[in-house]
Design a protein around this nucleic acid. Sequence first.
DNA 1: GTGGGAATGGAATGAAAATTCCATAAGCAC
DNA 2: GTGCTTATGGAATTTTCATTCCATTCCCAC
Lengths: 274, 274
Amino acid sequence: MNPSETSKPRNSADFFEMLRLRGNALPKRLKQCAEYVAANPAVVAVSTVAELAAGAQVPPSAFMRFCQEMGFSGFSEMQKLFREEYSQNWPDYASRLSKLRNGDAQAPQFLLAEFAEAGRTSIESLTRTIDPDALRRAVAVLAGARTIHLVGLRRTFPVATYLAYAFEKMQIPAILHSGTGNLSSAHLIGQGDALIAISFAPYTPDTIALAESAVKRNADVVVITDLPTSPLARIDAVRFMVPEVDVGAFRSLSATLTLAMTLAVGVGTQRRAL
Amino acid sequence: MNPSETSKPRNSADFFEMLRLRGNALPKRLKQCAEYVAANPAVVAVSTVAELAAGAQVPPSAFMRFCQEMGFSGFSEMQKLFREEYSQNWPDYASRLSKLRNGDAQAPQFLLAEFAEAGRTSIESLTRTIDPDALRRAVAVLAGARTIHLVGLRRTFPVATYLAYAFEKMQIPAILHSGTGNLSSAHLIGQGDALIAISFAPYTPDTIALAESAVKRNADVVVITDLPTSPLARIDAVRFMVPEVDVGAFRSLSATLTLAMTLAVGVGTQRRAL
DNA sequence: GTGGGAATGGAATGAAAATTCCATAAGCAC
DNA sequence: GTGCTTATGGAATTTTCATTCCATTCCCAC
């Protein structure tokens, strides 16, 4: 470790700042590496030294020297940084969950920190995984509907009620199917209507049934669920998979609500434009 | 290669389609893999078998079997698919943002970005402003209550229903006061009970009335509201001011829900410890 | 219960990748 | 040009990781 070495970058912003400062002072081959990495940051996360070296047109050993020159112990350490940024380093809540179970004397503010992080992570990854086209289609379908039906039971009931509130506030006709009194409300849904069905594992059968029945009745369906293996994902509909993070046995709803708000307001503005 | 094996997926859409179709028919461990992969697709691109297996809580060999069951020769081949897909999507990120800024402000993904930002900000400032001592007191009060009453109407109704769900799941006696049928339910609250009252501007009079009546009946009250000038803030109670960010006429609920989860789980663990 | 077949987990193996080392080449001062 | 320092490329080494194999367990049918 010679004294000219700068300290290790902690994130990619650090890293690129360092490149900016020291980039021009590097020897030829290392400069090639710097330029290649700057131009293809994402590729670093998913490639081997040999591949990157080939891309930068230098031998692998030169690339290794580059990594060390940037303050890392080697390529692996540098790659770790890019991988974390790239995958957002989804925290390992499974292991925290056991901590939650064992250490029963958890101070509430630690819990708050956990839930806050779960919420942030969920929202962050929502924005990266949502298909803009699906969003557009969902908004179009809902804006064109005569009546919007809403169903979400148990853990997703808050989302359904939020949508009901938002639509009411914008004076868009919407019906919340809550299952009160165990009445079947499937017959309310007809052609020209749309249904937003929300369900996470364990999937409430009533929600699935209502969604299936809506499809049979030629209503448009928008599905919000968690996984492609969900029974709701089998339905012919505009589908959203929301990457909500579990903390212990509880699931953050932040991302789902964010999506719900987006749909509601999107529909509102589109209707007004018509 | 047995005949039941499906042909190799060519892209991630293929892959998720296969998961959707065959996911439920898989044996337990392989299903865990399927779900983990579905929930964390980006992580697959940048992780090792061992890491993913740990994430899915299966041994590495099970994860290998999963890859082969999905039609790949092994993990490396499957990872290749994810790497290709995901390193292609990345460069769009910067251009996507600028497109968002330039393009019409009504595009749904622009809305999504706004709401996501609002949610993040709200949660962030919640963790900064919450008083740990108030949290501790609230949890103590609620954990000691015979029955926990919940009230939150209109825009805060989703929070109240979320709490109701959480308490039910943990088998903690809780009553959701929803005002259905316009029946007064204030008389249900008595000494030894606790009430969580949630209200944001414009404050629903029923919520305030119920909270005041609970105080008169010597019940403990926990208040979640937005401003110190709120009528709920005048009540003798453990008080939380949640700094939710408004987007247009709509308010993110992310921070409020995060606080609600914290209270619920905090009470749950504390009760179990008693 | 009991037998058979599928599923599982752990340890052994082999391949691939990162990292180091060293001989050679290039640049530079004198 | 000569000697010295720094840079370079390829090959050897070591570490990490994917993959396979097999003994054990689990589950279901009878």
